[in-house]
Measured scan of single mutants.
Amino acid sequence: IINNLKLIREKKKISQSELAALLEVSRQTINGIEKNKYNPSLQLALKIAYYLNTPLEDIFQW
């Protein structure tokens, strides 16, 4: 999986903590996703895309 979450999140000036709060997950979860240590569920990936107002395929590429 190619993961552009960190790049997109930083472009939008959103911290890991802010995104985690919006998604109701821990900051460690966001960190793990960004470091490719954790693959989000489809539901979480869709929520990330929604809150970042970015197409899912721009954030994650399988």
Rank of each mutant, 00 (worst) to 15 (best):
W62T: 11
N4G: 05
F60Y: 04
Q43P: 11
L5H: 01
R27P: 15
E57H: 12
N39S: 15
L23M: 07
A49R: 02
K47D: 06
W62S: 10
T54N: 03
Q28C: 11
E18H: 12
W62M: 13
I59V: 06
I59Q: 00
K37G: 07
G32M: 15
Q28G: 14
I14C: 06
K12T: 07
Q61R: 09
W62Q: 10
N4L: 05
R9H: 01
I14P: 00
Y51C: 09
N53P: 00
E57R: 10
A45K: 10
I2F: 12
L56P: 05
K37M: 15
Q43L: 14
Q43S: 10
I30M: 05
I33K: 02
L5C: 04
L46A: 07
W62L: 14
L7Y: 12
E24A: 14
K11E: 12
A45D: 00
P40I: 10
E10V: 11
S17I: 11
I1M: 14
A49W: 02
I2E: 10
L52N: 00
E18P: 03
L52C: 03
K11M: 13
P40V: 11
Y38W: 13
I8W: 06
S41R: 07
I1D: 06
L19M: 05
K47E: 07
L22K: 12
L56K: 02
R9P: 01
Y50H: 13
Y50R: 08
N3K: 02
L5A: 03
A45N: 01
P55Q: 07
Q28H: 14
S41D: 10
T54E: 08
S26Q: 06
L22D: 10
N4H: 12
A21S: 10
F60W: 11
N36A: 09
S15K: 10
N4R: 11
L22I: 12
D58S: 08
D58E: 14
L5M: 13
N36G: 15
L23W: 01
E24V: 07
R9A: 02
Y51H: 09
S17T: 10
I2V: 13
I14V: 10
I48M: 09
N36S: 12
N3I: 05
L5Y: 00
K11S: 15
I8N: 03
Y51D: 01
Y50K: 10
N3T: 06
E24N: 14
P55K: 10
Y50Q: 08
R27T: 15
E34M: 03
E24K: 15
I14K: 05
Q28R: 13
S41N: 09
A21Y: 10
E10D: 09
L46Q: 12
N36W: 07
E34V: 03
N39R: 15
R9W: 04
K6Y: 05
R9V: 02
E10G: 06
L23T: 11
L23D: 00
K47N: 06
K35P: 03
L19A: 01
L46Y: 09
I33D: 02
A21C: 11
A49K: 01
E18A: 12
L52W: 01
L56I: 13
F60Q: 00
I2S: 12
A45R: 07
Q43H: 13
I2L: 14
Y51P: 00
Q28W: 10
V25C: 06
K37E: 14
E57I: 08
S17Y: 09
D58T: 11
